[in-house]
Simulated assay, not measured.
Amino acid sequence: MERLIERSLFASRWMMAPMYLGLALGLVILVWVFLVELWKFALIIPVMTVNDAVLGVLALIDLSLAANLMLIVIFSGYENFVSRMDLDGHEDRPDWQGEVDFSGLKLKLVASIVAISGIHLLKVFMDVKKYTPEDIRWMVVIHLVFVISGVLLAAMDWIANHAKSLKKPKLVKA
């Protein structure tokens, strides 16, 4: 009975696979939105101001970072929680794939969220007249919460890894 329960629990990891496929479909949606934004951006080239150019590029970078974040979650999540991808011989396989553990995944997620939040904040600063001082204050506070959360998460991981290394027996060289 115990063996059946354990095998069933282990097999339940495959319930995550449709979620990663759904994220891949979400990536398709992001590509579509990117192309729409790029088209809108290209249409205003004849009358574009410097601010328009910077805001347009920031919007494209923002979408690109969100897509990168989705890829990190899809690849790392699938490999950490479902199954290894059998792509060892593939020439285009990213170097980090298969090496990002859950701790690394958390840090990459937080770093991506901070970068996306920073780009949103930069877009706000580029078009500051559209926002009330209170809106800007809240956006800065939210961004700082993301930054502080990222630093604290990194510190907690460093402490946990440092504690693990202290528990390992040290080899004495003869």
Rank of each mutant, 00 (worst) to 15 (best):
V128I: 15
V140F: 05
V145G: 03
V151T: 08
I119M: 11
H90D: 03
D127H: 07
V128T: 13
S112Y: 13
L109Q: 10
K106T: 11
G104P: 04
W138V: 09
V124Q: 00
D95L: 15
V140M: 10
E99T: 04
W96L: 03
I113L: 15
G118C: 02
A154V: 12
R137Y: 10
I136A: 06
Q97C: 00
I136M: 13
A154M: 04
M126F: 12
V100W: 01
H120R: 15
S103H: 07
I119C: 06
W138L: 11
I119T: 15
R93G: 00
G98K: 09
P133K: 00
V147K: 01
W138C: 08
K108F: 10
E91S: 04
L121F: 12
D135A: 11
V141N: 10
I142T: 05
Y131E: 11
F146T: 06
S149M: 14
D95V: 05
T132L: 12
V128W: 12
R137A: 12
F102D: 08
L105Q: 06
D127V: 14
P94D: 05
V128Y: 12
V147A: 04
G150P: 00
E91C: 00
K108R: 12
I113P: 01
D127P: 08
V140K: 13
V128G: 02
W138Y: 15
L107P: 08
V141D: 10
L109W: 05
S117Q: 15
L109G: 14
L122H: 11
K123H: 09
Y131S: 10
G150R: 07
K123D: 12
M126G: 13
Y131W: 14
A115Y: 01
M126L: 15
R137V: 09
A111N: 09
S112C: 13
S117R: 05
K130V: 02
W96V: 00
W96T: 03
G118L: 08
H90A: 03
V147H: 03
I142R: 09
I116N: 00
A154R: 05
K129R: 15
V151W: 11
M139I: 04
M139T: 04
D101M: 03
I142F: 06
I116C: 04
D92C: 07
W138E: 10
D135C: 02
E134P: 03
V141R: 11
V140Y: 08
A115I: 11
D101R: 10
S112V: 07
D101H: 05
A154E: 02
G104V: 02
